[in-house]
């Protein structure tokens, strides 16, 4: 299947780098909303509707915290809502906080997509040859936390079932030390075993599922063109919004419209490929 996540890791890395890079450096809510929409659609195709909504609660909480923290610390802005201890709490600061929260949420969501798409196989394919040690460390580190939680849960429930300790804290502590011991041993065994198999040696060849095809060149070119179309407005400051003392959008110019359109297209690309392949798959199944 030619879905987005089966592109060559290099293409994927280029894509995520450009989308996250643009999102970090824009403060225009319209860009942020289109990026957020793209990442949400992609997440739906990756993990399904229901699971995504369960995740969204956490991100919404972050958004709320950032939104309501900003007016507490920043008292700039012309529209006064009320005064706390002789400091004004303003609508503009609240809006600025909301935009900041939107940006953080969006970037976190894109990183979530990145995490789901980029497994250790893709990471090793990307860096395995040039930086073998770094790739190994990163892939172990990325896999560490979920694995830790999984083993902790299984050890803890086993201890509970065997009735070793009724007290919760005590049980947690024993499970925790067991998991630590196990993961340390696991790390040593992993590195020993990789060393035995000659990982990182000069003439060792690697198996990789991914092949860099002409399509990948085409996609990278498309990403690059979209990136080039997006950047001028950002660098010229024409996509700017000023929040203080009043919220004011700059007059849209040709570059702004071009930049906004190309960023929206860029953000929609993954979900477009996923949905397209999904429909094709359903169609082929219905033919059988």
């Amino acid at each position: 299947m030619n879905t987005f996540r089966n592109f060559h890791p290099l293409t994927l890395a280029g894509y995520f780098l450009s989308v996250i890079g643009i999102s970090i450096f824009t403060f225009n809510p319209i860009y942020l909303l289109s990026g957020l929409f793209g990442s949400l659609l992609f997440l739906i195709t990756l993990m399904g509707f229901r699971k995504m909504f369960a995740h969204l609660r956490f991100y919404f909480l972050i958004f709320l915290i950032v939104t309501f923290t900003n007016p507490v610390f920043s008292h700039n802005g012309a529209t006064v809502l009320f005064f706390i201890n002789d400091n004004r709490v303003t609508l503009e600061a609240l809006i600025y906080g909301a935009v900041l929260g939107l940006m953080i949420t969006e970037v976190l969501l894109w990183f979530k997509c990145f995490n789901l798409v980029f497994d250790s196989e893709r990471l090793l394919c990307l860096f395995g040859k040039t930086f073998p040690k770094l790739a190994l460390v990163v892939s172990i580190a990325l896999g560490f936390v979920p694995q830790f939680i999984r083993t902790f849960k299984s050890i803890n429930s086993t201890q509970k079932a065997l009735g070793f300790s009724k007290r919760r804290v005590q049980r947690y502590l024993t499970s925790f030390s067991a998991v630590i011991t196990r993961s340390m041993e696991g790390a040593i065994i992993t590195s020993d075993s990789m060393k035995c198999r000659g990982y990182g040696l000069k003439n060792r060849t690697y198996f990789s599922r991914f092949r860099f095809t002409a399509y990948d060149v085409l996609y990278i070119l498309i990403f690059f063109v979209l990136l080039i179309c997006t950047l001028p407005a950002l660098f010229l400051g024409q996509s700017g919004v000023s929040f203080y003392p009043y919220v004011k959008f700059e007059m849209p110019t040709f570059f702004t419209v071009l930049s906004l359109l190309s960023f929206t297209v860029l953000a929609m690309i993954p979900s477009f490929f996923e949905v397209k392949e999904g429909i094709r798959w359903k169609y082929l199944i219905s033919k059988i």
Partner: peptide
Amino acid sequence: GCSIKSADDY
């Protein structure tokens, strides 16, 4: 710990 006032009051 806060004294909250409306803009007019302040």
